[in-house]
Amino acid sequence: MNDHLSLSDLINVQIKAQGPMSLSTYMNLCLTHPTLGYYRKADPLGRQGDFITAPEISQMFGEMLGVWVAQIWQQMDKPKKFTLAELGPGRGTLMADMVRIFQGVPDMMDALSIQLLETNPVLKQAQADAIKGTPLNWVEEIHQLADIDGPLIVVANEFFDALPIKQFQYTNGNWFERVIGLKDDDRVWGLSPTPMPTDAFPAKIAKPEENAIWEMAYPAQKNMEELGALVAEKSGAILAIDYGYAETQTGDTLQALEKHKMVDPLAHPGAADLTSHVDFEALSETLDRDKLNICPLISQKDFLKAMGIEMRAQAIMDHIPDARQKVENDLERLIGDKQMGQLFKVQAIGSKNMVPYPFEAS
């Protein structure tokens, strides 16, 4: 294709040549096009970027996840070798904060091998700069983790929400896929003319309201299935933190963020971050319940409080009194009911007989 065309032009050319485009195809191109995709270009994080993740708000978030990982390692009787894999590690801030905790746990750093699932070369360099003093390994696909030795602990903070989805709309008694077409060279929403078989949809949404939208995140489900199979085989645990819902439901949750503002998802391909809310029930249904312990969801607030974030905040404020206001503000953002505290959910999955604290057995 012509190197001088924008991603917007390339998408329009493809629609003209092949007909209306699935949302999953559109998201894939927007986020991961080899040269023009959002995640393949510059660093999208932080105040100069499009969004701020919890690790960028405060070191306390990463430290609490580090405490959780250290605890899992101890629950597994401190194996001499284990792998910690982070999916979508951003600038490396979260892993750097976790490693700082591990350095205070006897023998843990000697046992640790870090694997980072990352495709963005700019972020890979940022991760290398942020995480000093311990060797790093990078993978681009989950199946590459199959080669590791020892148990596997996986941390996925705001990873699943960024994977492509399909949307379906219920109209006149049938489900139709929502697709993206062109009207006078502007991208617009439309519906596939072919109705989908009703039995392809979850029973919970069998009788929705007219024009209800249901989202299906096949890549997220596939990734969780692969991770679950690896943890079942090698032993270990998975921790997934994301905004989403506990039970499958209808609703249009697709959103685009550009420079911290909501924009039209169809307007600026490759320039905005596209995300959707995570259907945690759909993710858990991909897992083998005979081989894994799928813990009930808890809120980010309950998770961080159980891991000791309030005590950590107090310790920082005692040590640096001038930081009190910032620490209090950061804590409120992370655990406040009207901030991230309730919106973000935390899912833990343990290998057989593993019930990760502070979660309950399934």
Rank of each mutant, 00 (worst) to 15 (best):
Met60Thr: 11
Pro208Lys: 02
Gln18Arg: 12
Trp214Ser: 01
Pro44Glu: 09
Leu182Pro: 00
Ala212His: 04
Gly336Arg: 05
Phe102Glu: 03
Arg40Thr: 11
Glu281Ile: 07
Ser284Tyr: 01
Met354Glu: 10
Gln59Leu: 11
Ser235Gln: 11
Glu177Lys: 05
Glu215Asn: 02
Arg91Tyr: 09
Pro269Trp: 10
Val346Leu: 04
Glu210Trp: 03
Leu182Glu: 00
Glu310Thr: 14
Glu285Arg: 14
Thr134Tyr: 11
Leu152Arg: 00
Ala203Asn: 13
Ala272Arg: 02
Met307Gly: 00
Ile205Val: 15
Asp161Pro: 01
Arg324Ile: 08
Asp330Ala: 06
Val327Met: 11
Ala156Tyr: 03
Leu274Tyr: 01
Leu23Val: 09
Asp252Leu: 10
Leu292Phe: 05
Ala200Asp: 12
Met340Ser: 05
Pro265Tyr: 10
Lys261Met: 14
Gln103Ala: 13
Asn223Trp: 10
Leu274Ser: 04
Pro202Val: 01
Ile131Asn: 02
Ile241Val: 14
Gln75Pro: 00
Thr194Ile: 15
Ser299Asn: 05
Val263Arg: 07
Asp186Val: 14
Glu285Thr: 15
Arg40Val: 03
Leu297Val: 04
Leu94Asn: 14
Glu233His: 13
Val139Cys: 15
Met262Gln: 10
Thr198Ile: 15
Gly104His: 14
Thr32Phe: 13
Arg100Ala: 12
Pro219Ala: 08
Lys291Ala: 15
Ile213Asp: 01
Pro44Lys: 07
Ala126Gly: 04
Thr250Arg: 07
Leu145Met: 08
Glu177Gly: 04
Ile180Asp: 06
Phe344Met: 09
Trp175Leu: 03
Ser24Tyr: 09
Asp110Gly: 13
Ile142Asp: 04
Asn174Glu: 11
Gln300Thr: 00
His268Trp: 08
Asp3Lys: 13
Gly173Phe: 09
Tyr39His: 08
Thr25Val: 11
Phe160Pro: 03
Ser362Cys: 12
Thr35Gln: 15
Gly133Arg: 08
Leu87Pro: 06
Gln325Pro: 02
Phe168Met: 05
Asp288Cys: 05
Asp288Asn: 12
Leu331His: 01
Gly88Leu: 05
Ala85Asp: 07
Ser192Glu: 13
Lys259Ile: 10
Leu227Ala: 04
